[in-house]
Amino acid sequence: MLTLPTHLPADAQSSFRYGTLPELPSIDGKPNPGVAGAFAGISHGALLLAGGANFPNGYRWQNGRKAWQSAVYVLSEPGKSTHWQSAGTLPGPLAYGASVSWNEQLICIGGANADQQHAAVFSLTWHPKTRQVITKTLPDLPLALANLSASVLGHELYVFGGESSQGSVRSLFVLNLQHPESSWQSRADLPGQARSFTTLVAMPDADGGSLFVLGGRQTVAGQTTVFGDAYQYHPKQNTWQRLGNLPVAVAAHEAAGVDTNRLLLFGGDDGVRLRQIEALNNQITNQPDHPEKAKWVVQRNDLQMNHPGFRREIWQYRTDTKRWAVVGHMPFPAPVTTTAIRWGKSFLLPSGEVSPGIRTPTIRLITSVSP
């Protein structure tokens, strides 16, 4: 059972209402297993979800293989429409990129397939009259990246971190979306460790706004470190500022801004069970002839099959007080490797992974009932 740090205060002034939107549509008459690492966002009032990866024919402990997806789905009126519709496919199977909603477009950035990371950037736009999704290309990233994070501040698209073919990076790139022909520009690297599975949150203000990097993880030689540090980036000065740590180290979480002073962080993987699984994986790999190998395999598979799920807290960070507080607790298996999408006073958590290998077709709706 996961427990909260005892020193963390609860904020009684804030609460949420929880609901769901229609589940992802069935595939060939079978229930949709859901996807992790899909591109997701809003275009002309429609919720788009594209690509992602899953295990449709058995999980890892059942010798199942990961399948990379290319389908594009549209829920044309979130909250009103009762079903999803198919809206074609991506140019190829793709997952674990970053996505943002801007100017009625879902912008899809980077990602990977079974073979490699990708640098492609493109937008998907839903046209309600023709009921079609139109794809438009944007300049490629300077570096092929997966498990990166992105956010839009004004008309500038920022991309941070991720995994290249050489490992995790701490690079920050920016693209002017009003003048994409100017291509991507490099900005100051994060002063902390390179990382992926993090979040980049834009917070506008009267001075032009800033960006926040929260947690994340790095895997080196089969061992993953989950980070609890946080940073604020100031675009005008091109400088980073180290903030106080998160309440708990997390990765593969979701985060989004609420207003100029508040951001929310949803759940995440604290890495406790992950490190146990990795330790057994490393023993199995490095000692293939060890007499205890079969026992280790059983132990590893049991850790995966009986995973307790990811953290369910909703944390709030106030930029004025620089304090964290628990403001909610998701009453459902919390998804990771998805995107928190702002929708009025609500946030959508579409599909995602609820324990190792296990996806959900459910679209979670979290609505603030506080002022």
Rank of each mutant, 00 (worst) to 15 (best):
Trp102His: 15
Ser123Thr: 13
Ser99Gln: 03
Thr130Val: 11
Leu138Asn: 04
Leu106Glu: 10
Asp115Met: 10
Ser149Cys: 14
Leu148Asn: 13
Leu124Pro: 04
Trp126Pro: 01
Ser151Tyr: 06
Pro78Lys: 11
Lys136Leu: 10
Thr130Met: 10
Lys136Asp: 11
Ala119Asn: 12
Ala144Asp: 00
Pro142Asn: 09
Ser86Ala: 11
Val133Pro: 05
Ser76Leu: 06
Ile107Gln: 06
Pro128His: 10
Leu124Tyr: 06
Trp126Gln: 07
Ala120Gly: 00
Glu77Ser: 14
Leu106Val: 15
Pro142His: 08
Ala87Val: 02
Asp140Cys: 00
Ser76Asn: 12
Cys108Asp: 05
Gln116Ala: 14
Leu124Lys: 07
Val152Lys: 08
Ile134Gln: 13
Ala146Cys: 12
Ala95Ile: 01
Ala150Val: 01
Trp102Tyr: 15
Leu138Gln: 03
Pro142Thr: 08
Ala146Ile: 01
Leu124Ile: 05
Thr135Ala: 12
Gly110Pro: 08
Pro128Lys: 09
Leu157Ile: 05
Arg131His: 12
Gln117Trp: 00
Ser101Gly: 02
Pro91Tyr: 07
Glu156Lys: 13
Ala150Gly: 04
Trp102Ala: 12
Leu143Val: 13
Leu90Asn: 04
Pro139Tyr: 08
Ala95His: 02
Ile107Lys: 03
Leu141Gly: 01
Asn113Ile: 09
Gly110His: 04
Trp84Met: 05
Leu148Arg: 07
Trp102Asp: 04
Leu138His: 13
Gln105Phe: 03
Ala87Ile: 02
Leu148Cys: 14
Leu145Pro: 05
Leu148Gln: 11
Ile109Trp: 07
Asn103Trp: 03
Ala112Leu: 11
Thr137Val: 02
Leu138Asp: 03
Ser76Asp: 15
Glu104Pro: 00
Thr82Gly: 13
Leu90Asp: 03
Pro78Ala: 09
Glu104Met: 00
Glu104Gln: 15
Lys129Glu: 14
Ser151Lys: 01
Ile134Lys: 13
Thr82Val: 08
Gln105Arg: 15
Pro78Asp: 09
Gln117Ile: 00
Gly161Asp: 02
Ala119Val: 02
Asp115Phe: 11
Leu106Asp: 10
Gln117Tyr: 11
Val133Ala: 11
Lys129Ser: 13
Ala112Thr: 11
Lys80His: 12
Gly97Ala: 10
Gly110Thr: 01
Leu94Cys: 13
Glu104Asn: 15
